[in-house]
């Protein structure tokens, strides 16, 4: 089975620092791959490579079989990205931001009614949707980010610590939205520090350490406690 998101022995070197060291992983349709790891483990670097924001030193990243370096724009059509902090245009409303980014994503105008529906699905009513983004909380901005990703109808979601800084309720709602996406057949690769979130939403869980993928587990095969002890074991070896 071909994965929607594939990393094939991807390495990335920044000067003397080896940020990624031959990372290989695959995320299939309807799968949520949670990538755990300490700061500087290489999680965001991998996401940046998938987005073609940086080029790998060696190896290849693919989206639906397309090399992201050689077919960057085509690959991005199949990907939706939600960063740790969804930053939008403060002078525009949530609705205007959604319609703008959705138009960039889909090559077609998103009707206002449909945009309002999408925002409602992520928990933003019409009144909130028509307010300026500068008045939004981080959680509300994240929700607009999800609405943008949903509007794109992408085959893959790339999420870079999306629940970081969210309150538990918002984080839970976010996880629910991810599961919805997964159920629709979207391949999700998300980086996180949150083990609970990973166990709750992930189909697969990877642990990264010093640029290497040191664990690649099926979420169903491991309990939360085992995951925690495994993670701590790797983290305690971080400086070795």
């Amino acid at each position: 089975m071909n994965g929607i998101l594939e990393a094939l022995a991807v390495s990335k070197r920044f000067g003397e620092t080896l940020a990624l060291d031959g990372v290989s992983l695959q995320v299939n349709a309807g799968e949520v791959f949670c990538l755990l790891g300490a700061n500087g483990a290489g999680k965001t670097t991998l996401v940046n490579i998938f987005l073609n924001f940086i080029a790998p030193t060696s190896g290849e990243a693919r989206v639906d079989g397309r090399d992201v370096t050689r077919h960057a724009l085509a690959a991005k059509r199949d990907m939706a990205y939600i960063p740790e902090q969804v930053m939008l245009y403060g002078v525009l409303s949530g609705l205007e931001n959604l319609r703008y980014f959705a138009a960039l994503a889909t090559d077609e105008d998103l009707p206002e009614r449909r945009a309002l529906d999408l925002l409602r699905q992520v928990g933003l009513d019409e009144t909130a949707a028509r307010r300026r983004i500068s008045e939004y909380s981080k959680g509300m901005r994240q929700k607009v980010g999800i609405a943008i990703a949903s509007a794109k109808n992408a085959k893959a979601f790339l999420l870079d610590e999306p629940t970081s800084g969210l309150d538990p309720k918002a984080a839970n709602e976010f996880s629910q939205l991810l599961r919805t996406a997964r159920d629709k057949g979207v391949a999700v690769l998300t980086t996180t520090h949150d083990l609970f979130h990973a166990k709750q939403t992930g189909s697969r869980i990877g642990i990264m350490r010093r640029g290497r993928l040191v664990e690649n587990l099926l979420a169903a095969d491991i309990s939360h406690l085992d995951l925690e002890s495994l993670y701590l074991k790797h983290m305690s070896n971080q400086d070795e």
């Binding site: 990205y81 939008l88 980014f101």
Partner: peptide, 14 residues
Amino acid sequence: ERGTLRLLLSHSLG
């Protein structure tokens, strides 16, 4: 600096 560039260029926009 605003943080919107990454989101913009995550689409098929050159």
